[in-house]
Design a binder for these strands. Sequence first.
DNA 1: GCGCTCATTGACTGATGATTCAATCAAATA
DNA 2: TATTTGATTGAATCATCAGTCAATGAGCGC
Lengths: 213, 213
Amino acid sequence: MRDAIKHLRRTELIEATIRVIGRRGFSRTTLAHVAAEAKLSPGIVSFYFSSKEGLLHETLAHLAAEYEKTWTRSVRAVGDDPVAALDAMIEVDLGREVCVRGTVAVWVAFWAEMPGRPRYRVLCNELAERYFEQARRMCHEIARRGGYDDLDADTIARGLNAMIDGFWLDLMMDPKRFDRARAKRACRQFLAGVFPAEFGPLAAGAASGRRTG
Amino acid sequence: MRDAIKHLRRTELIEATIRVIGRRGFSRTTLAHVAAEAKLSPGIVSFYFSSKEGLLHETLAHLAAEYEKTWTRSVRAVGDDPVAALDAMIEVDLGREVCVRGTVAVWVAFWAEMPGRPRYRVLCNELAERYFEQARRMCHEIARRGGYDDLDADTIARGLNAMIDGFWLDLMMDPKRFDRARAKRACRQFLAGVFPAEFGPLAAGAASGRRTG
DNA sequence: GCGCTCATTGACTGATGATTCAATCAAATA
DNA sequence: TATTTGATTGAATCATCAGTCAATGAGCGC
């Protein structure tokens, strides 16, 4: 089972990296810290990764893959109802699994390093692009079905997107001022304003506060 | 005028630091780069600042002071109309003076370093607190005057705040996907949903697209 | 148990970059 | 002009880390 252990160590190191960046910030993350966090010797990192840069890049890729997996899973689970799907996006992004302080701090750390690092930029922007495309499609679909003719669905999708990211920042900067339920409520309030029939107080279906996540 | 030159050099170095972080990211910003950017010798930095850490801290303080200055100025300028004031906040935060890619990138860089750096944390959170307090007050006031009784003004303020921050991230990550006018529109759309009489399409006053900024 | 293979260790090396400081230079003053 | 004061330089020093590698150890087949 040689491949298995290889995979295990790599994952351990990547997860240690995430914890260390979350705790110390990007600029003060050293390989020694990562190795110690993973309870391995300092030399091991270059054995499993081409370089520190390689480890960091794979850490970001890992983070992105994990996030995209949970996110697409939840959206698929609700079938083809765009209202429920949009609601599911809010639920996932601000839910207990994804919206965790340490993890969010690492996302912000990578975002902050994007200037001058094409690889990070490409990875993050491609993910953001796929994510936005979904949100956009849902908003268009809701507008179409609901007969909201003169509504700019792109802008709504961007706005929702931005609000969610902003709440991630809140969580990262000061967990005391972040309130999961309130964050979700604000997002739904925004959607209620533009799609009253679907998300407003009189909406029959998905988007009222059923969930507690 | 010895004090004048002292002040000048310090400002030059701080502004060079901002440019370098904006271009290279936090983790790859060295004193040599900063000095070169300011067209000064490498040794000079320790002459004007206690250490690299000191320079960075003062850079953040400078950034915060500048931001708060322009922001409070604009809000004060509109008098005591809370609708106009809230609108002015959007206008400033997403306007040409404040919402500049390089500067925003530096903000994000400092945010990302907040874990494990109490000084940054305190500075950023105190600023955020003052800012939020304003937004909160305006929302409450609008709700009170407009007779929106069962409206959670705090959540609205948080939501607006988050959306603006999220748009800053958009600008930083990919200027192509950021659109100043659209960002403002999304913010106003959110407010229109919760305060229709003040920000909605039928609102008489301030919040329709007068400005072009 | 014996040897083989591969994972792991941790001391070492070299590079990078913060910091120091003696020497230089320029401006102000006498 | 000579002197003094303080700004500025850049080479030298020192610390920190990434990356290397010979030595060790653990598991596995014989």
